[in-house]
């Protein structure tokens, strides 16, 4: 989900940018010789995931998978998502770098939440495939749900009731995204558990 620049008001943008700065700082503390390449590679993964489109009815939906990223990376999701979004902003002209803080926050904060709430599900080995599917689904639900909530909050803090209609439409538009992200996330967790289980305990 990207909020276009110009919609959010100045105070909201500054607050969001400050929160993102805190998140990124915490994330950067987790960078070591081992995790620096992992972070760079996942920035690439998140960037490329955004280019995968799935046809739905008349249109197409593109994958988000911020919950999955959070499940795997934890606080590193903040700098990783910030970098991926800034490159997308430049290369696909989503315009404006001031809204980067807000867009990073709404994707990365739920990602970190997923890490703390869903990750424990996968701690005790071996995990059943049902548990894996559940973990993936929860990751996507918290990821998309959280993002929608934060976006709604930011919009509301800008325009109050005047934005109710807009918030409603944007939230409704997230429904197909949530469904597809949940299905894909769930499947990906099971695939990783089979092919490369270390991925789930970085």
């Amino acid at each position: 989900m990207h909020l276009a620049e110009g919609v959010l008001g100045f105070p909201t943008l500054i607050t969001a940018a400050a929160c993102t700065a805190v998140g990124v700082t915490i994330g950067m503390r987790r960078l070591t010789t081992r995790t620096l390449p992992i972070a760079a590679l996942f920035a690439a993964v998140f960037f490329l995931i955004g280019t995968i489109h799935i046809p739905v009815g008349l249109g197409s939906v593109h994958l988000v998978l911020n919950g999955l990223i959070g499940l795997l990376l934890g606080w590193l999701a903040f700098p990783v998502i910030l970098i991926a979004l800034s490159l997308q902003a430049l290369l696909f002209s989503f315009g404006g770098f001031f809204v980067l803080g807000a867009n990073t926050l709404l994707l990365a904060a739920p990602a970190v939440l997923v890490h703390y709430t869903v990750r424990p599900l996968l701690k005790t080995q071996p995990t059943s495939s049902n548990r894996q599917l559940l973990a993936g689904s929860m990751a996507a639900t918290i990821g998309i749900g959280g993002a929608t909530l934060i976006a709604a909050l930011m919009l509301w803090s800008t325009g109050q009731d005047a934005f109710n209609g807009l918030i409603g439409v944007l939230a409704a538009a997230q429904l197909p995204v949530w469904l597809i992200d949940t299905a894909v996330s769930a499947l990906v967790v099971t695939m990783l558990a089979r092919a490369l289980p270390e991925a789930l305990s970085l």
Partner: peptide
């Protein structure tokens, strides 16, 4: 389609981790 997209993502992540190593 969803299965295939999931495969794409999973492979992407696996390749990413191998490259990272």
């Amino acid at each position: 389609t969803i299965r295939v997209s999931a495969q794409q993502v999973a492979w992407l992540i696996i390749h990413a981790l191998l490259r990272a190593q």
